[in-house]
Protein backbone atom coordinates (compact mmCIF):
# COMPACT_ATOMS: atom_id res chain seq x y z
CA UNK A 1 0.00 0.00 0.00
CA UNK A 2 2.65 2.51 0.98
CA UNK A 3 4.09 2.85 -2.48
CA UNK A 4 5.68 6.14 -3.48
CA UNK A 5 2.85 6.67 -5.94
CA UNK A 6 0.26 6.26 -3.21
CA UNK A 7 2.11 8.73 -1.02
CA UNK A 8 2.46 11.20 -3.86
CA UNK A 9 -1.25 10.88 -4.58
CA UNK A 10 -2.05 11.64 -0.96
CA UNK A 11 0.29 14.61 -1.07
CA UNK A 12 -1.61 15.98 -4.05
CA UNK A 13 -4.90 15.43 -2.24
CA UNK A 14 -3.61 17.22 0.83
CA UNK A 15 -2.34 20.15 -1.20
CA UNK A 16 -5.70 20.43 -2.92
CA UNK A 17 -7.75 20.29 0.23
CA UNK A 18 -5.31 22.58 2.03
CA UNK A 19 -5.47 25.18 -0.74
CA UNK A 20 -9.25 25.23 -0.57
CA UNK A 21 -9.34 25.48 3.21
CA UNK A 22 -6.76 28.24 3.09
CA UNK A 23 -8.78 30.28 0.59
CA UNK A 24 -11.89 29.99 2.74
CA UNK A 25 -10.05 30.50 6.02
CA UNK A 26 -8.45 33.74 4.81
CA UNK A 27 -11.84 35.37 4.40
CA UNK A 28 -13.04 34.20 7.79
CA UNK A 29 -9.94 35.45 9.51
CA UNK A 30 -9.99 38.83 7.75
CA UNK A 31 -13.52 39.59 8.87
CA UNK A 32 -12.95 38.16 12.33
CA UNK A 33 -9.81 40.20 12.75
CA UNK A 34 -11.65 43.45 12.15
CA UNK A 35 -15.11 42.83 13.56
CA UNK A 36 -14.72 39.84 15.93
CA UNK A 37 -17.43 38.21 13.85
CA UNK A 38 -17.50 34.48 13.24
CA UNK A 39 -19.18 34.62 9.87
CA UNK A 40 -21.33 31.51 9.68
CA UNK A 41 -22.56 32.48 6.23
CA UNK A 42 -19.04 32.34 4.84
CA UNK A 43 -19.27 28.74 3.69
CA UNK A 44 -22.49 29.54 1.88
CA UNK A 45 -20.59 31.97 -0.32
CA UNK A 46 -18.86 28.85 -1.61
CA UNK A 47 -22.24 27.43 -2.48
CA UNK A 48 -23.20 30.59 -4.34
CA UNK A 49 -19.95 30.50 -6.30
CA UNK A 50 -20.46 26.88 -7.23
CA UNK A 51 -24.02 27.44 -8.45
CA UNK A 52 -22.96 30.48 -10.45
CA UNK A 53 -20.17 28.54 -12.15
CA UNK A 54 -22.57 25.75 -12.91
CA UNK A 55 -24.98 28.19 -14.48
CA UNK A 56 -22.28 29.95 -16.46
CA UNK A 57 -20.94 26.74 -17.95
CA UNK A 58 -24.21 24.92 -18.46
CA UNK A 59 -26.59 27.70 -19.43
CA UNK A 60 -24.48 30.43 -20.92
CA UNK A 61 -21.83 28.15 -22.37
CA UNK A 62 -19.16 30.71 -21.59
CA UNK A 63 -15.46 29.76 -21.54
CA UNK A 64 -14.03 28.07 -18.47
CA UNK A 65 -11.87 31.02 -17.44
CA UNK A 66 -15.02 33.10 -17.06
CA UNK A 67 -16.57 30.39 -14.93
CA UNK A 68 -13.83 31.12 -12.43
CA UNK A 69 -13.62 34.89 -12.62
CA UNK A 70 -17.29 35.80 -12.90
CA UNK A 71 -18.44 33.91 -9.80
CA UNK A 72 -15.61 35.47 -7.84
CA UNK A 73 -16.72 38.97 -8.80
CA UNK A 74 -20.40 38.26 -8.39
CA UNK A 75 -20.00 36.64 -4.98
CA UNK A 76 -17.76 39.52 -3.92
CA UNK A 77 -20.67 41.74 -4.91
CA UNK A 78 -23.00 39.66 -2.77
CA UNK A 79 -20.58 40.03 0.12
CA UNK A 80 -20.63 43.79 -0.35
CA UNK A 81 -24.41 43.86 -0.49
CA UNK A 82 -24.85 41.69 2.59
CA UNK A 83 -22.44 43.87 4.52
CA UNK A 84 -24.30 47.01 3.54
CA UNK A 85 -27.80 45.70 4.21
CA UNK A 86 -27.38 43.33 7.13
CA UNK A 87 -24.18 44.05 9.02
CA UNK A 88 -23.66 47.79 8.77
CA UNK A 89 -26.94 48.61 10.53
CA UNK A 90 -25.57 46.62 13.47
CA UNK A 91 -22.40 48.60 13.94
CA UNK A 92 -22.17 49.43 17.63
CA UNK A 93 -24.62 46.69 18.60
CA UNK A 94 -23.33 43.81 20.73
CA UNK A 95 -21.04 41.43 18.87
CA UNK A 96 -23.56 38.66 19.14
CA UNK A 97 -26.00 40.55 16.92
CA UNK A 98 -23.71 40.11 13.92
CA UNK A 99 -23.20 36.46 14.73
CA UNK A 100 -26.94 35.90 14.76
CA UNK A 101 -27.27 37.82 11.52
CA UNK A 102 -24.66 35.62 9.90
CA UNK A 103 -26.62 32.55 10.98
CA UNK A 104 -29.76 34.01 9.43
CA UNK A 105 -27.95 34.82 6.19
CA UNK A 106 -26.60 31.30 6.06
CA UNK A 107 -30.08 29.91 6.48
CA UNK A 108 -31.41 32.36 3.92
CA UNK A 109 -28.90 31.23 1.29
CA UNK A 110 -29.32 27.54 2.02
CA UNK A 111 -33.08 27.62 1.99
CA UNK A 112 -33.37 30.21 -0.74
CA UNK A 113 -31.36 27.84 -2.92
CA UNK A 114 -33.51 24.92 -1.85
CA UNK A 115 -36.64 26.87 -2.69
CA UNK A 116 -35.55 28.00 -6.13
CA UNK A 117 -33.16 25.26 -7.23
CA UNK A 118 -34.38 22.30 -5.10
CA UNK A 119 -32.19 20.43 -2.65
CA UNK A 120 -31.30 17.88 -5.34
CA UNK A 121 -27.49 17.71 -5.71
CA UNK A 122 -26.41 18.65 -9.23
CA UNK A 123 -23.49 16.94 -10.90
CA UNK A 124 -20.69 19.13 -12.21
CA UNK A 125 -19.33 18.00 -15.55
CA UNK A 126 -15.85 19.43 -15.89
CA UNK A 127 -14.95 20.91 -19.24
CA UNK A 128 -12.54 18.63 -21.07
CA UNK A 129 -9.52 20.89 -20.55
CA UNK A 130 -9.85 20.46 -16.80
CA UNK A 131 -10.91 16.83 -16.69
CA UNK A 132 -7.82 15.77 -18.65
CA UNK A 133 -5.31 13.74 -16.74
CA UNK A 134 -1.58 14.02 -17.07
CA UNK A 135 0.78 11.26 -16.09
CA UNK A 136 3.99 11.98 -14.22
CA UNK A 137 5.69 8.64 -13.90
CA UNK A 138 3.09 6.39 -12.34
CA UNK A 139 1.30 9.34 -10.81
CA UNK A 140 -1.78 10.51 -12.67
CA UNK A 141 -2.97 14.04 -12.01
CA UNK A 142 -6.08 15.83 -13.14
CA UNK A 143 -5.49 19.27 -14.58
CA UNK A 144 -8.10 20.42 -12.09
CA UNK A 145 -5.75 19.48 -9.23
CA UNK A 146 -3.04 21.70 -10.63
CA UNK A 147 -5.46 24.54 -11.28
CA UNK A 148 -6.67 24.45 -7.69
CA UNK A 149 -3.23 24.69 -6.17
CA UNK A 150 -1.89 27.21 -8.68
CA UNK A 151 -4.91 29.49 -8.53
CA UNK A 152 -5.03 29.39 -4.74
CA UNK A 153 -1.35 30.27 -4.50
CA UNK A 154 -1.73 33.06 -7.04
CA UNK A 155 -4.67 34.54 -5.16
CA UNK A 156 -2.81 34.34 -1.87
CA UNK A 157 0.22 36.10 -3.30
CA UNK A 158 -2.02 38.78 -4.78
CA UNK A 159 -3.74 39.23 -1.43
CA UNK A 160 -0.39 39.40 0.33
CA UNK A 161 0.73 42.19 -1.99
CA UNK A 162 -2.59 43.97 -1.56
CA UNK A 163 -2.41 43.87 2.22
CA UNK A 164 1.25 44.88 2.40
CA UNK A 165 1.55 47.43 -0.38
CA UNK A 166 -1.73 49.23 -0.99
CA UNK A 167 -3.08 52.00 1.19
CA UNK A 168 -6.37 50.26 1.74
CA UNK A 169 -4.60 47.01 2.55
CA UNK A 170 -2.48 48.72 5.16
CA UNK A 171 -5.56 50.40 6.55
CA UNK A 172 -7.13 46.98 6.77
CA UNK A 173 -4.27 45.66 8.85
CA UNK A 174 -4.49 48.72 11.07
CA UNK A 175 -8.20 48.04 11.63
CA UNK A 176 -7.37 44.46 12.50
CA UNK A 177 -4.83 45.62 15.08
CA UNK A 178 -7.17 48.07 16.71
CA UNK A 179 -10.37 49.24 15.09
CA UNK A 180 -10.89 52.22 17.38
CA UNK A 181 -7.38 53.50 17.00
CA UNK A 182 -7.56 53.15 13.24
CA UNK A 183 -10.79 55.11 13.21
CA UNK A 184 -9.24 57.86 15.31
CA UNK A 185 -6.33 58.01 12.90
CA UNK A 186 -8.76 58.82 10.13
CA UNK A 187 -9.16 55.45 8.46
CA UNK A 188 -12.50 55.13 6.70
CA UNK A 189 -13.55 52.09 8.69
CA UNK A 190 -16.78 51.49 6.80
CA UNK A 191 -14.92 51.32 3.52
CA UNK A 192 -12.30 48.95 4.92
CA UNK A 193 -14.95 46.65 6.35
CA UNK A 194 -16.90 46.64 3.08
CA UNK A 195 -13.77 45.76 1.11
CA UNK A 196 -12.85 43.05 3.61
CA UNK A 197 -16.27 41.50 3.17
CA UNK A 198 -16.02 41.70 -0.61
CA UNK A 199 -12.58 40.08 -0.74
CA UNK A 200 -13.59 37.50 1.80
CA UNK A 201 -16.73 36.52 -0.10
CA UNK A 202 -14.92 36.59 -3.45
CA UNK A 203 -12.27 34.17 -2.24
CA UNK A 204 -14.93 31.86 -0.81
CA UNK A 205 -16.75 32.09 -4.15
CA UNK A 206 -13.74 30.88 -6.12
CA UNK A 207 -13.09 28.22 -3.52
CA UNK A 208 -16.65 27.03 -4.03
CA UNK A 209 -16.18 26.80 -7.78
CA UNK A 210 -12.98 24.82 -7.32
CA UNK A 211 -14.53 22.65 -4.62
CA UNK A 212 -17.47 21.68 -6.80
CA UNK A 213 -15.07 21.02 -9.69
CA UNK A 214 -12.96 18.77 -7.53
CA UNK A 215 -15.75 16.82 -5.84
CA UNK A 216 -18.26 16.95 -8.66
CA UNK A 217 -21.47 17.98 -6.89
CA UNK A 218 -23.33 21.14 -6.01
CA UNK A 219 -26.16 21.36 -3.49
CA UNK A 220 -27.59 24.09 -1.27
CA UNK A 221 -25.74 22.87 1.81
CA UNK A 222 -22.37 22.04 0.29
CA UNK A 223 -20.53 25.03 1.74
CA UNK A 224 -21.63 24.70 5.32
CA UNK A 225 -19.25 22.06 6.64
CA UNK A 226 -16.22 23.26 4.61
CA UNK A 227 -16.92 26.73 5.99
CA UNK A 228 -16.87 25.39 9.53
CA UNK A 229 -13.72 23.44 8.85
CA UNK A 230 -12.08 26.54 7.48
CA UNK A 231 -12.82 28.13 10.81
CA UNK A 232 -10.95 25.27 12.45
CA UNK A 233 -8.08 26.01 10.08
CA UNK A 234 -8.17 29.68 11.02
CA UNK A 235 -8.11 28.81 14.73
CA UNK A 236 -5.19 26.43 14.25
CA UNK A 237 -3.23 29.15 12.48
CA UNK A 238 -4.29 31.84 14.95
CA UNK A 239 -7.55 33.62 14.22
CA UNK A 240 -7.10 37.13 12.91
CA UNK A 241 -3.83 36.36 11.19
CA UNK A 242 -3.85 35.94 7.40
CA UNK A 243 -0.59 33.97 7.23
CA UNK A 244 -2.03 31.92 10.08
CA UNK A 245 -5.11 31.11 8.00
CA UNK A 246 -2.92 29.91 5.13
CA UNK A 247 -0.76 27.83 7.44
CA UNK A 248 -3.79 26.45 9.25
CA UNK A 249 -5.52 25.64 5.98
CA UNK A 250 -2.66 23.55 4.70
CA UNK A 251 -2.04 21.92 8.07
CA UNK A 252 -5.68 20.94 8.30
CA UNK A 253 -5.66 19.65 4.73
CA UNK A 254 -2.69 17.46 5.51
CA UNK A 255 -4.06 16.27 8.84
CA UNK A 256 -7.36 15.30 7.28
CA UNK A 257 -5.80 13.45 4.35
CA UNK A 258 -3.36 11.68 6.64
CA UNK A 259 -6.21 10.62 8.89
CA UNK A 260 -8.16 9.15 6.00
CA UNK A 261 -5.12 7.53 4.48
CA UNK A 262 -3.68 5.97 7.58
CA UNK A 263 -6.49 5.53 10.11
CA UNK A 264 -7.67 1.96 10.64
CA UNK A 265 -10.23 1.09 7.94
CA UNK A 266 -13.27 1.25 10.23
CA UNK A 267 -12.42 4.77 11.35
CA UNK A 268 -12.06 6.69 8.11
CA UNK A 269 -15.77 7.52 8.25
CA UNK A 270 -14.96 9.63 11.30
CA UNK A 271 -13.01 12.13 9.23
CA UNK A 272 -15.18 15.15 10.02
CA UNK A 273 -15.36 14.16 13.67
CA UNK A 274 -11.58 14.08 13.68
CA UNK A 275 -11.39 17.65 12.38
CA UNK A 276 -13.64 19.05 15.07
CA UNK A 277 -12.00 17.01 17.79
CA UNK A 278 -8.82 18.70 16.60
CA UNK A 279 -10.52 22.08 17.14
CA UNK A 280 -11.30 21.20 20.74
CA UNK A 281 -7.74 20.08 21.33
CA UNK A 282 -6.29 23.25 19.82
CA UNK A 283 -8.64 25.39 21.93
CA UNK A 284 -7.52 23.50 25.01
CA UNK A 285 -3.80 23.51 24.35
CA UNK A 286 -3.13 26.62 22.35
CA UNK A 287 -6.22 28.79 21.93
CA UNK A 288 -4.26 31.61 20.29
CA UNK A 289 -3.20 29.24 17.50
CA UNK A 290 0.22 29.05 15.95
CA UNK A 291 0.60 32.63 14.76
CA UNK A 292 -2.11 34.44 16.69
CA UNK A 293 -1.94 36.82 19.61
CA UNK A 294 -3.60 36.40 22.95
CA UNK A 295 -6.32 38.87 23.72
CA UNK A 296 -5.51 41.20 26.58
CA UNK A 297 -7.91 42.47 29.19
CA UNK A 298 -8.56 46.16 29.23
CA UNK A 299 -9.90 47.49 32.47
Amino acid sequence: MLTPTYLAQQLVNALNLGSLYALVAIGLTMVYGILRLINFAHGDMMTLGAYLALGIIALLALPVELALVLPMLLVAGVGLLVERLAYRPLRGAPEVAMLITSLAISSLIQNGATMTLTAQPRPVRLPSQLAQRIAIGELSLAVMDLVIVALALALMVALGVFVKRTTIGIAMRACSENLRAAQLMGVDVNRVIAIAFAISAGLAGVAGVLWSGKFGLVDPFMGFVPGLKAFVAAVIGGIGSIPGAVLGGYLLGFAEVLFVAFAPPGLSGYRDAFVFALLLIVLLVRPAGLLGQREVNRA
Binding site: V232, V235, A273, F276, P287
Partner: peptide, 16 residues
Amino acid sequence: LRGHYLSVATLGLMVI
Protein backbone atom coordinates in the same frame (compact mmCIF):
# COMPACT_ATOMS: atom_id res chain seq x y z
CA LEU B 1 -11.89 31.40 26.39
CA ARG B 2 -13.38 34.79 25.68
CA GLY B 3 -15.37 35.40 22.55
CA HIS B 4 -17.67 33.20 20.58
CA TYR B 5 -15.58 30.07 20.31
CA LEU B 6 -18.43 28.17 21.90
CA SER B 7 -20.58 28.74 18.80
CA VAL B 8 -18.11 27.04 16.51
CA ALA B 9 -17.19 24.32 18.97
CA THR B 10 -20.84 23.39 19.49
CA LEU B 11 -21.51 23.34 15.75
CA GLY B 12 -18.43 21.12 15.53
CA LEU B 13 -19.99 18.94 18.21
CA MET B 14 -23.09 18.67 16.05
CA VAL B 15 -20.96 17.39 13.17
CA ILE B 16 -19.17 14.97 15.49
